[in-house]
């Protein structure tokens, strides 16, 4: 019963938190650029407006792919808060991303195509590090279950500092922040316009946005998991991570996919694998 309640709470509260975070992101970004920025609740207004727009689908199947994307993102988040297997959570999230890519491929737009190709590259770039994170947590806690990991009495960060930093590194791409916002950036000021999202409009775009809110909450939850034994430390780490990402986004140029792939794998190999090797020997 408690699990069901947690899941319902997640489904209701996560988009609110995610939307607020998006608003904060824009506010903090504006502050760094010495602008005033939009109201804090602007992302909600945006999404509400998108729902009211006329529905123009380039391809009918697009709608189902987007819906699947949303459902699987929610599913992965729900599994996470329900304390299920961490690997299952990660694969559910990967599957969600696959649906987004299929959605981008389903429309005949060159921008969307290139965006989808880059999204695949980006998945290749961050996936190893995410898997290493799960393995590292398993090696410390001897369990893949999120519930067990969260209940572990020690602070995971102490044993997994390399993995934590490596995860932050790939998180930049996952949160769509420059330098790694290859397949789509926030403002579409990019050679491939909106990348994977170029041909999405109206309600579909709104659903993608909501899915990203869920996803961001889940990703920051993953960061929080490192500090699960001390809740307030976890909250602090999440906030710090979030502002660090906003800061990096505003103060770096977008890099190429070759660089993203190479640097993410190097980060995974050096920080992630290095941390695992150290764990084996101590």
């Amino acid at each position: 019963m408690k699990t069901v309640l947690t899941i319902v709470l997640f489904i209701v509260a996560a988009p609110l938190a995610g939307g607020l975070m998006a608003g904060l992101d824009r506010k903090a970004g504006a502050w760094m650029q010495s602008r005033v920025g939009p109201p804090l609740l602007q992302p909600f207004y945006d999404v509400a407006k998108l729902f009211s727009k006329q529905n123009i689908a380039v391809h009918k199947s697009q709608k189902y792919y987007v819906l699947c994307f949303l459902v699987f993102v929610i599913l992965s988040g729900a599994l996470f808060v329900a304390g299920q297997d961490l690997l299952l959570v990660i694969f559910a999230l990967t599957l969600a991303d696959v649906f987004l890519i299929l959605g981008a491929y389903s429309v005949r737009s060159p921008y969307s195509y290139v965006g989808a190709e880059r999204e695949l590259v980006q998945m290749m770039a961050y996936e190893p590090m995410v898997i290493i994170t799960a393995i590292g947590m398993y090696m410390v806690t001897k369990s893949f279950s999120v519930a067990d990991i969260a209940a572990f009495e020690q602070n995971l960060f102490v044993k997994l500092p390399g993995i934590f930093i490596g995860l932050l590194f790939v998180l930049t791409g996952k949160l769509r922040k420059s330098p790694f916002d290859l397949s789509m950036s926030h403002h579409a000021h990019q050679e491939i316009v909106g990348g994977v999202l170029t041909e999405f409009s109206g309600a579909e775009l709104a659903m993608v946005k909501i899915a990203y809110w869920y996803q961001n909450v889940f990703l920051l939850g993953l960061v929080c998991l490192f500090f699960a034994s001390a809740f307030w430390l976890g909250v602090g780490a999440v906030m710090l991570t979030f502002f660090l990402e906003v800061f990096i986004d505003n103060n770096s140029a977008r890099l190429t996919w070759q660089f993203t792939l190479a640097s993410s794998w190097i980060a995974a190999a050096v920080l992630g694998m290095g941390n695992l090797v150290v764990l084996i020997f101590i």
């Binding site: 420059s178 950036s185 505003n250 770096s252 140029a253 977008r254």
Partner: peptide, 16 residues
């Protein structure tokens, strides 16, 4: 140029 590179704060700084 900064905008094309996705470097938002530099973009605004130049225009300021």
């Amino acid at each position: 140029l900064a905008n094309a590179l996705g470097f938002e704060s530099l973009f605004m700084h130049c225009w300021k």
